[in-house]
Design a protein around this nucleic acid. Structure first.
Lengths: 231, 231
DNA sequence: GTCTATAACGAGATAGAC
DNA sequence: GTCTATCTCGTTATAGAC
């Protein structure tokens, strides 16, 4: 898409990356709420006003970090999915889940940025929505493969939730029955509940074997969506 | 527990409450990372050094807010449980879940304080552990009632997770089989995944009927733990 | 055109002397 | 407990270097 034309463009890309790297360091040290353009500039030996050539505002820098984080966790899930046994739908599902978890454990502050408390005063713009859905899209793709390969059997949905599930399915997972769509949305949120509890310390001095518990729970989530192993 | 002796104690209690109220207001406006004793004092017309007579440090004030929040969400779950049909185990489970969700929707910033991103530089002391487990204890009690009333049937646990589940069960849910214990821990985390996704904006411009989806998912969580309706 | 630097604004936090 | 001097912040205007 973007072609690099010369030294000028290359320098711009490098400086942009340096700004984001430094911003991520501050994210880890102080949290997103205290991310400051001035501190980033100071650390890079620049003057704060120079940053505005690269990011029109502090919120735009935040948005870039958020989009990058969503893309990174999405890519981690997709990579894990690509490496899984293509014939085992439940294994593919669990692969996405463990891919997400591994990424989160490796980059806890970026995880907190996107799945933790909202940043006070910041409101995410539309362009975060697409990247934010990448993990969900990957989960949907596994459910669709399993459905196409042999159907998925789930108990019927209650009448009051079916219209919503049908609407969601039409928009995000066309072709999948509403029972699966409802289970998918719930499993999607619940997956991140497992990761957040581990990362945010709720399991401290309680759960020791976190990976084993996670794999177990992720598998049960897959079954909730109707997936069966080895099909 | 604490007996109120006179006007001095009453004044102390009132000031303490006023400090916490103001701190909670700042939590909502600026986030936990920016909670500042000075700002609280200023807003109350006090001088910052005076606050140290009530809270030895900013972290102690934070701890108090965290303990209060855990107690409040725990009490909300327990209250909802007490109001549910005692004969319907699945309804009792779902009652706890909706009680937690309602509390979270009513006090989103206190929810974020305890279930959102960790506060940079703050490390929760031991005394938060007890209050933090109240919701979990309520969920366990429902599972125990159902188990005592007629047993719970779940597929056996994989060998590599069983020791951990047995250890957890011995410590937190004695008498319950390890399959139920593992399901309980996972469901506990997943419940807050559902609430966090709704509260932290992941459902924005996506899920509309959030309560309906939540009730559905909470019921499925209860079934994952082995609960059946009306028993 | 592209970038950086200087300076300034209004708002707010902070440290220390008193 | 008060006051002040000095920091921080995001952001903008402007001027000049490449």
């Amino acid at each position: 898409m973007t072609t690099i034309r010369g030294a000028r463009d290359r320098a711009r890309i490098e400086v942009t990356a340096a700004i984001k790297d430094e911003a991520r360091r501050q994210l880890a040290a102080e949290g997103a709420a205290k991310l400051s353009l001035r501190a980033v500039a100071r650390e890079l030996g620049m003057v704060s006003s120079a940053l505005y050539r690269y990011f029109p505002s502090r919120d735009d820098l935040l948005t870039e970090l958020i989009v990058d984080a969503y893309d990174a966790v999405g890519a981690a899930g997709e990579r894990a999915l690509a490496a899984a046994d293509p014939a085992d739908h439940l294994a593919r599902w669990t692969a996405i889940c463990t891919g997400v978890r591994s990424w989160a454990l490796a980059r806890p502050h970026e995880y907190a940025l996107i799945y933790g408390s909202p940043v006070p005063g910041y409101s995410a713009p539309r362009r975060t929505v697409g990247p934010a859905s990448r993990v969900g899209v990957a989960l949907i793709s596994v459910a669709r493969d399993a459905f196409d390969a042999g159907g998925i059997a789930l108990p019927p949905l209650s009448e009051d939730l079916r219209p919503e599930a049908e609407r969601l399915g039409a928009e995000f997972a066309p072709g999948l029955p509403p029972e699966v769509v409802a289970a998918l949305v719930a499993a999607w949120a619940q997956l991140f509940g497992l990761v957040s509890f581990e990362l945010f310390g709720q399991f401290n001095s309680m759960v020791e074997e976190r990976e084993k518990l996670f794999v177990h729970a992720a598998g049960r989530l897959g079954r909730e969506v109707g997936l069966l192993p080895g099909r």
